[in-house]
Each structure stands twice: as structure tokens, then as C-alpha cells.
Design a binder for these strands. Structure first.
Length: 727
DNA sequence: GCATGTCAGGCGTAT
DNA sequence: ACGCCTGACATGCCT
């Protein structure tokens, strides 16, 4: 078998290779050019042809170019500087370019100095600047400079210069002040985590053309820009969490990757809908979910980072008055949220939440005043409802529940005895269900018979630890063709490997930062998952702990082995047969399931194909082009040690019901579980983006070589980027 | 398991 | 400068 397996993911012996964290290789992030005629000689690269070209994240895209996803930066890649320096020529990658677009043609306007609030221009963070400088020697040792130089060289001037602008803003001064205080208060060594944070984030950002984010889209977002910002935010946040997880906790230094990343993105102007507005926020849909307040802020749905009431000044008849535009109801006050369409919201202030000696009443000011004005003006108010995240009880999920109007207001005595303003809001009719869906699902969980169209409460018959509902509320088909439910992948035998090792000795589970753990070493020094069980980013190959590892089943590095974590349902779609969706929200990077079935030999593929119209075959080596934007390592193809083919026709799990989409919300990831006797390779699915409950889960089935052309099927994914077919 | 406490935190608003 | 319906932990209470 492949004797080079794992070579690229082995850390430099003796120490963690930090360059892997901020290894910046812009080429990998650029959009591969797909030929408009996919069956033409698409996979040969003419000598001298540039295989990639730059496009801004949000277009305009040449007709044959798809935007890319932010699962690009790789922990596991270890390209040498010499390789990096060759990158711009890029010969040997990708496809011929029919209409290459020069980099400069999408260059953004010179950074504007004034945002709406005077604080939104491109980065003015003196902290990043100072810290980058003060750690230059440290960085060089880590190979950082190489990648940075490469990035700077390749991106010419337009992405780096903004990071070097002196920050004279109030917030920066404040930041410096608070930082000084923080540092002075504890014993902190040279490698401050916050230094790394800025370094890491800035390097990733500078590698992916985000500075192309033009002013227009900052003022008014659209679905693409909003989606991109959210993907970027959470990817960076996970990356930062991963790095901080692997360090000693430092007293006095807070771990708030959400705030750190949010602040950097805000300062760089990587945000949208900056201008406050009443009503609809372009690019944000009712039902969209968020996991951090910072996300609401970045996409302009709710501007205050902590406060629950967002409001803006309006000049009416030459008089300035403030009106409420958005509220977040997340349980901090005694709101009444029993009814899905009515919300009794409490005003802010007073000592409702504090145990002071004296009772302090709420005052008719700030948000309270704005809500009062909005009652009289009758303007729409966006409502975001915070719900407890069942999968992660210490945090909340924010659900955008659409537009409401304020019906009445009054004051009453709160529990602490102070006067509290109350506002009754009702949801405007005709909007898609959002929060109500959450309530319904809760009912289904309590009593499945309350659901219409249920065929089977659990089609796995207990094979999974969470039931999988089978439902058809579209027509009267009674279920998919018979198959045996198999919760995990079945191997006839382990694959022998010369590189097998005995596994780890982490009896309490693999601990991030433990560089002695061979499994962590295999993953280039970092566990691929952060503490809440979220995959940090896509990699060409993940090494999970295997059967000879000493760690328990709940080890963080065995995430894909624990079975389902969300309540899925197999449902009848309108036009694509059966599909898969989730009752529970799924966050970006969240594990969905593995592809279970029987591993078959490549020689059997043709006969199976012949008799099997519906496919149910997962062919790991088939997917070439569509994975490229998701994958960053080496040649952009998942690095699997042998051509894995799985059939789920007779036996499989829920994954066999996942439909194809050219704009998927799920990606697959090869996972290797090794032991001293060999290894087995698995395919696991993870969410590309946050997904509200009941979103159909889809992944890209990929392309196939032109000689298999006759097997393509018409695609019904309905995406604007639809290729028109899939295999 | 929960409820409550604590702490650092960034931004918007008012001063 | 202040305050805010954060978010991550820690602690303490209850079953």
C-alpha cells in the first residue's frame, strides 16, 4: 500500500511545527477553474496555462467559476518553503483557463477611512501591528515569515496593507490599556496566546482575498456575502480555539475566540449591512441560526454586541428620535416566550439581574425609550430568539424569527421589586415559520404521534443511539426499498500497513497540546476537533484514535465513532425521492454521520453499477473538482491510502439517503483509524455551515472521468450554481 | 443535573 | 466612562 501515507501529516520530530497553523498558501484558496464543457479534455493542463486565477469572494464570477468555501486553511499540510515559492506558477494543478481574469481587475477601492460609526474602516488595530513586529523573530523561527512573504508576494499589496495602518481609534487605545492590565496581572510567558490569535487570523485572512470585499457589499449585504462572513467567522473561531486548546490555560487571559475574531473582522471591514435599518436585512433569512452574538453583529442583523435592544436615530420633522430596530430575547430577563407568535419583552436596565441592596427601577431611556417610540411609530422590529443549545448546554443558539410589531407597553414589578418595562410584540403574518418550528420539533420529541406522516419512529430499529424517523408527508409511498440498517462501515478485513503503530496511551482521552501523543502527532500537532466536538477544518486525511489506542470511547479524537449526535429523519422530497434532514440544529463543522455500508473491491464496481440504478455507491476517489475548494492540502484531493469504494445498496446507514447538490451544505472527510495490525478508512460527513432544523442535508457527489459520461443524471438541486447533472 | 456567581470583554451611546 | 438579555468557567445547591 502507499508507503508515503501519513508522511505529510507527521510533525517535525521533537517539536510541534507551528508553521502548520499559519501556513499560508494562497493558491490553494483560489477558485479552480472548471471548464464549461466538463466532458472535454478537462484534466489536462496545457503547458504554461495558469490553472487558477483570483476572483473576489462574492463575484462577479466568470460564468464557469464557482465561489469557494472557507474550509481551506490546512493544519495538516507541510509544504516546504521551496514548494511554496513555486506555487504561483502552479503548473500541474487544475484545469485550463479559458478566460483568465487578472488579479487586479477585482481590486477594491483604496480603503475608506470612515465607516458609518467612524470605526469600521480597514484594520486600525495597532495591537496586531505592534505584536507582529515584536514577535518577528519568534515568527521566523516558526517558518511563519516564509508563508507570510509568500502570501504578501502573491497577493501583491492589496490585502496586507490595511493590516499595517496605524490604529488611532478609541477602541484600540482602550484595547492596549486593557491588555496592559491583563498582562500585568498574571505570570505570562513570551508566547502570549493573544499574539498568536492576531497572527493566525491575519495570516489566514491575508491568504484568501477577503480584502476584495467591496464597500457596496458592506453597506448592503446579500445571501452570498452574509454566508461568507459567517463561514469565515466560525472557521477562524474554530481555528483559534484549536490553537488555544492546545495550550496551558493562562490565568487572567480570557479565552474568547469569538470576540477576538469578531473584533478583527469588524476592524477589517469584513462585515456587512453596516448601516442600521428598519425591517428586512438583505441576505439574512428568517429561520437563520447563529451561535454567537458577534455573528449577529457582523452581518448587521443586530448591532449591539451585548445589549438586547438595537436602535437607531431617525430624524422626523427635524426632530431626532430613536426607534428600536431589533431585539434579542435570550432569557436574561423575565420575558414571556410561551406563544410562538407573541413575545412579551422586558426593557433594559434596573437591577433585575443584580442583587444590589437598593431597588433600582428601569428608566425610560436608551433601548426602552426606543421601544416606546417604535410602539407609536409602528415600525417593524426584528426579533432574535435565544434558545438553549441542547448539544452544548452552556451556550445558546440565536434564531432569527423575522419581523414583529409592538402592540402595547406597560410597567410592572419585577422579581427583584423594581419597575420593569414590558413590551408586547406580535409576529407579522405571512412570514416563514422559524421559532415555531423549534417548538413543533420539541413536541415531536415528546410525542412522535403528534407528527403527521410518520411511517416509522425509528428506521434503525435501535441500531443507532438516537432514533431516525421515517416520514412521508408528500405522497403515499410507504418507504424506500428494503435495506439492512448498518450503523458503521463494514470491512472484510483490516488493511495491512507498514506504517501501523500501537496507538496512544492516553488513558483519560487525548489531551490537546500533548505532543507525546502519537495520534496528535499524526494530525500535525493538533487534535482535529475542538472541545465541543466540532471539526476545525477539512483535511485531506484525519487520523482518529483506533482500536489499539488506550483512550476511552469518548476521547475527543474518536468523534466520528460515537454514532449519531443529532436526530435525523429520512423524508420524502417533492422531486428527488428520499432525502435526509435533521430535527436538531447543526453548526458549521458539526459531525453528521459516517457513510456506512460494505467495502467492495474495485473490480466489482462495474457489475454493481450495471444492476444498480440508484447508485448507493460511495466512491471516494471519484470526487475531483468539487472537493478542491473545500480542501487545501497538497493536491486538493482527499489523501486516501487506497481507492475506497462503499456500497450501501443492501446495507447502509442514513448517509445513503443524502442527496446530491451542486451547492452542498455537507462535505465528506476521509478518516483513518489505525492500529498495530493495520488500519481502516472511514468517510464522515460534516456540516459546511450552520443549519437550522429541517434543512435538507446534501453533499456534492462529485465528478467522474469523461469515459463514464453516459451515467450522468439530471441534477435537481435547484442551486444557482447547478452544473445540471451529477453522477 | 441545575442555578447562580465571576470575570474579561467590545461596542454603542452619552457625557 | 458606562452599561449592556455574553460566554466560559467555577461553585454551590439540590435531587
Amino acid at each position: 500500500m502507499d508507503r508515503t501515507l501519513g508522511k505529510d501529516s507527521d510533525p517535525v520530530s521533537g517539536s510541534m511545527d507551528k508553521s502548520s497553523v499559519w501556513d499560508v498558501r494562497p493558491l490553494r484558496r483560489l477558485v479552480p477553474v472548471f471548464p464549461s464543457q466538463p466532458n472535454s479534455s478537462s484534466f489536462s493542463v496545457p503547458q504554461g496555462a495558469a490553472p487558477f486565477f483570483c476572483v473576489p469572494p462574492f463575484g462577479p464570477f466568470p460564468s464557469d467559476v464557482a465561489p469557494f468555501y472557507p474550509f481551506f486553511a490546512s493544519v495538516g499540510s507541510h509544504r516546504h518553503p521551496e514548494q511554496n515559492s513555486q506555487a504561483p506558477s502552479g503548473v500541474g494543478y487544475g484545469n485550463p483557463v479559458t478566460a483568465a481574469v487578472p488579479i487586479t481587475s477585482f481590486r477594491m477601492q483604496p480603503p475608506s477611512t470612515a465607516g458609518v460609526n467612524g470605526d469600521t474602516g480597514p484594520s486600525r488595530s495597532s495591537r496586531s501591528r505592534v505584536q507582529s513586529q515584536s514577535h518577528s523573530s519568534f515568527a521566523e523561527e516558526d517558518g511563519y515569515s516564509n508563508s507570510q512573504n509568500q502570501g504578501a508576494q502573491f497577493l501583491s499589496s492589496f490585502s496586507m496593507h490595511v493590516a499595517d495602518v496605524e490604529d488611532t481609534s478609541k477602541s484600540a487605545r482602550r484595547k492596549n490599556k486593557s491588555q496592559k492590565r491583563t498582562r500585568g496581572s498574571g505570570d505570562i510567558n513570551i508566547t502570549l496566546p493573544d499574539v498568536d490569535a492576531d497572527l493566525i487570523v491575519n495570516n489566514i485572512l491575508s491568504s484568501c482575498n477577503l480584502m476584495e470585499f467591496d464597500m457596496l457589499r458592506r453597506t448592503d449585504g446579500d445571501k452570498e456575502s452574509v454566508g461568507y462572513i459567517l463561514l469565515m467567522f466560525d472557521f477562524l473561531r474554530r481555528k483559534l480555539s484549536q490553537v488555544e486548546d492546545s495550550r496551558e490555560a493562562m490565568p487572567g487571559v480570557s479565552r474568547r475566540p469569538d470576540l477576538r475574531v469578531g473584533t478583527i473582522l469588524m476592524n477589517k471591514g469584513i462585515r456587512t449591512n453596516i448601516k442600521k435599518r428598519i425591517g428586512v436585512v438583505p441576505g439574512v433569512e428568517i429561520g437563520d441560526i447563529f451561535f454567537f452574538r458577534m455573528e449577529l453583529c457582523l452581518i448587521g442583523l443586530h448591532h449591539p454586541i451585548m445589549a438586547g435592544i438595537g436602535y437607531m436615530g431617525l430624524t422626523v420633522n427635524q426632530e431626532e428620535e430613536s426607534v428600536a430596530v431589533s431585539i434579542v430575547s435570550s432569557g436574561g430577563y423575565e420575558d414571556n416566550v410561551e406563544d410562538g407568535d407573541v413575545l412579551i419583552y422586558s426593557g433594559q436596565g434596573g437591577n433585575v439581574n443584580r442583587k444590589d441592596k437598593e431597588v433600582v427601577d428601569q428608566k425610560l431611556e436608551r433601548g426602552n425609550l426606543a421601544l416606546e417610540k417604535s410602539l407609536h411609530r409602528g415600525n417593524e422590529v426584528r426579533v432574535i430568539r435565544g434558545v438553549k443549545d441542547v448539544a452544548n448546554p452552556s451556550s445558546k443558539i440565536y434564531v432569527y424569527d423575522g419581523l414583529y410589531k409592538i402592540q402595547e407597553s406597560w410597567t410592572e414589578k419585577g422579581k427583584s421589586g423594581c419597575n420593569v418595562f414590558k413590551y408586547k410584540l406580535f409576529r407579522l403574518p405571512g412570514q416563514p415559520e422559524a421559532f415555531m418550528t423549534w417548538k413543533l420539533i420539541q413536541q415531536w420529541k415528546n410525542d412522535i404521534t403528534s407528527r403527521i406522516g410518520v411511517i416509522l419512529p425509528d428506521l434503525t430499529s435501535g441500531a443507532e443511539n438516537i432514533p431516525v424517523t421515517l416520514i412521508n408527508d408528500v405522497d403515499d409511498e410507504k418507504g424506500p426499498a428494503h435495506f439492512t440498517y448498518l450503523p458503521s462501515l463494514k470491512y472484510a478485513k483490516l488493511v495491512n500497513s507498514a506504517e501501523s503503530y500501537g496507538g496512544c496511551n492516553c488513558h483519560n482521552g487525548c489531551i490537546p497540546g500533548n505532543q507525546n501523543c502519537p495520534c496528535i502527532q499524526k494530525n500535525a500537532g493538533y487534535l482535529p476537533y475542538i472541545s465541543n466536538g466540532v471539526l476545525v477544518n477539512q483535511k485531506s486525511l484525519i487520523h482518529e484514535c483506533g482500536r489499539s489506542c488506550q483512550c476511552p470511547p469518548n476521547c475527543r479524537n474518536r468523534l466520528s465513532q460515537g454514532g449519531l449526535r443529532v436526530h435525523l429523519e429520512v423524508f420524502k422530497t417533492k422531486d428527488k425521492g428520499w432525502g435526509l434532514r435533521s430535527w436538531d440544529p447543526i453548526r458549521s463543522g458539526g459531525f453528521i454521520c459516517e457513510y456506512a455500508g460494505e467495502v467492495i473491491d474495485i473490480s466489482k464496481i462495474e457489475e454493481l453499477r450495471g444492476e444498480n440504478e440508484d447508485g448507493y455507491i460511495f466512491y471516494a476517489t471519484r470526487t475531483y473538482q468539487p472537493m478542491e475548494p473545500l480542501c487545501s492540502d497538497s493536491d486538493g484531493v482527499p489523501k486516501i491510502p487506497f481507492p475506497l469504494i462503499i456500497t450501501a445498496k443492501d446495507a447502509g446507514n442514513v448517509a445513503r439517503f443524502m442527496n446530491h447538490s451542486c451547492s452542498p451544505n455537507v462535505f465528506w472527510q476521509p478518516i483513518l483509524r489505525q492500529s498495530d495490525k493495520g488500519y481502516d478508512l472511514h468517510i464522515a460527513f460534516y456540516a459546511i455551515k450552520h443549519m437550522p432544523p429541517m434543512t435538507e442535508l446534501t453533499y456534492d457527489y462529485g465528478l467522474i472521468l469523461p469515459d463514464k459520461e453516459e451515467r450522468k443524471k439530471n441534477c435537481l438541486c435547484g442551486s444557482s450554481k447547478c452544473r445540471g447533472y451529477f453522477y
